[in-house]
Amino acid sequence: MSLTLEQVKAKSASKLSGLLSADRTAAEALIEFAYAHGVPIVITQGLRTIPEQDGLYAQGRTTKGLIVTNAKGGYSYHNFGVAIDFALLLPDGGVSWDTKRDGDGDGIADWDEVVADAKRLGWEWGGDWTSFKDMPHLQMTFKLSTADYRAGKRPTQSQLDTLIAKIKKMKGEDEEMTAEEKKDFEALKILIKAQVEVTSTLSNRIAELEDKQKLSEIPAWALKSCESAKAAGVLDATANGSYDFYRMVTILDRVGVFEKGVK
């Protein structure tokens, strides 16, 4: 099964909806960059509520299952919309957390390609942690601790805008023009339009002059020379020539060029 980029992005849409705007933009960019490498991914976790976090923390402690987190409710960046988890999206629609898989056959583990893209975008990777490595985890916290978030602090709009602008630049998207840039751009369009009109007028005038130079019939004095030129294989056609053209053909014929052939 070959999925389009839009189909791949749709599989993560529900997990991205609760993220901060800049983190959501960074997550979407990561999906796009990974897809461009031939490594489709799916975001398996985005915003997680405090009760959900408490339930996850209880797993392997007071409830069945393996321990998958050391963070209680309010102590995970997932609880504040600044963290995501990802997995590799398989051709059959399934998912994989195999960090050694090389599905695109380029000799580089797919997981490593995704992590490299994530770090370029500014994500912090849980696989770099010295204890309790969390391989699928990525977070973009804007240098705020979970204590800061619990206290109600959030990234400034300037921080969010700066990150979004950086991502747009990485994606090759044009940034919004300033009012002065828009004014200069409109002036440039007017100048280019005027130049195009002048060029078009000159081209039409040149074509008119060229047409006027063409003779509707081959002059009688040049008929024999034109036939000699065609017989010698020098010219394929001699119709619609100018006066100067026929004059030159006649001169060349008279000096015997067409009898000798052009060398």
Score class of each variant (00 low, 15 high):
Gly93Ser: 08
Glu173Trp: 10
Lys119Thr: 02
Asp128Asn: 04
Lys182Thr: 10
Asp106Gln: 01
Tyr57Phe: 07
His78Arg: 07
Leu160His: 01
Ile31Thr: 00
Ala147Val: 00
Leu30Pro: 02
Gly241Trp: 08
Glu32Cys: 02
Asn79Ser: 01
Leu121Gln: 11
Ala27Asn: 05
Gly94Cys: 06
Lys169Trp: 09
Gly38Asp: 03
Gly103Asp: 00
Gly46Val: 00
Met140Val: 06
Cys226Met: 05
Val198Glu: 14
Tyr246His: 05
Ala187Thr: 07
Gly126Ser: 04
Lys189Tyr: 01
Glu32Leu: 00
Asp253Ile: 00
Phe185Pro: 03
Ala58Trp: 08
Leu209Arg: 10
Asn204Met: 14
Phe142Tyr: 14
Gln159Lys: 04
Leu252Trp: 11
Leu89Gly: 06
Gly46Trp: 04
Leu20Gln: 08
Val68Cys: 06
Ser145Tyr: 02
Ser76Ala: 07
Thr250Arg: 09
Leu188Cys: 15
Ala232Trp: 01
Asp104Gly: 01
Gly46Thr: 01
Asp106Tyr: 03
Leu215Gln: 03
Pro40Asn: 15
Asp102Val: 03
Ile190His: 10
Ile31Cys: 02
Val257Ile: 15
Asn204Ser: 15
Asp102Glu: 04
Leu160Pro: 00
Gln45Phe: 08
Glu28Met: 06
Leu56Ile: 05
Gln59Cys: 14
Asp161Phe: 06
Ala71Val: 04
Gln213Ser: 13
Gln45Tyr: 14
Lys182Leu: 08
Glu124Ile: 08
Lys193Tyr: 11
Lys212Arg: 13
Trp221Val: 13
Trp97Ala: 15
Asp102Ile: 00
Val249Met: 03
Ala165Arg: 11
Gly74Tyr: 03
Ser203Asn: 13
Lys182Ser: 06
Trp125His: 14
Gly18Phe: 03
Ala83Pro: 01
Ile108Pro: 00
Thr49Asp: 11
Met140Pro: 07
Ser158Trp: 10
Pro155Thr: 10
Leu47Cys: 06
Gly233Lys: 06
Val42Lys: 01
Gly261Asp: 03
Arg247Asn: 11
Ser145Leu: 07
Asp236Gln: 15
Thr156Gly: 07
Ile67Ser: 09
Asp161Ala: 12
Asp253Trp: 03
Ala26Gln: 05
His78Asp: 11
Phe86Leu: 04
Ser96Thr: 08
Tyr149Leu: 13
Gln157Gly: 11
Thr25Val: 07
Phe185Asp: 09
Phe142Ile: 05
Ser21Ala: 13
Leu19Asn: 09
Gly55Asp: 09
Leu163Cys: 04
Phe185Ile: 02
Ala165Lys: 04
Val255Trp: 11
Leu188Asp: 12
Trp221Asp: 14
Leu90Val: 09
Lys169Phe: 00
Pro155Cys: 12
Ser225Trp: 02
Ile190Asn: 12
Trp221Leu: 14
Asp236Ile: 05
Glu208Ile: 14
Leu191Phe: 06
Thr146Asp: 13
Leu16Cys: 09
Ala237Asp: 12
Asp184Ala: 15
Lys9Leu: 13
Val114Glu: 04
Trp111Asp: 02
Ala83His: 07
Val196Asp: 14
Ile43Asp: 01
Leu89Arg: 07
Phe258Gln: 07
Val257Tyr: 05
Lys166Glu: 06
Val115Glu: 02
Val234Cys: 08
Gly256Val: 07
Thr44Pro: 04
Gly233Gln: 02
Lys263Val: 12
Leu160Cys: 13
Glu52Ala: 10
Ala232Cys: 04
Glu227Tyr: 14
Val249Gln: 05
Ala71Lys: 09
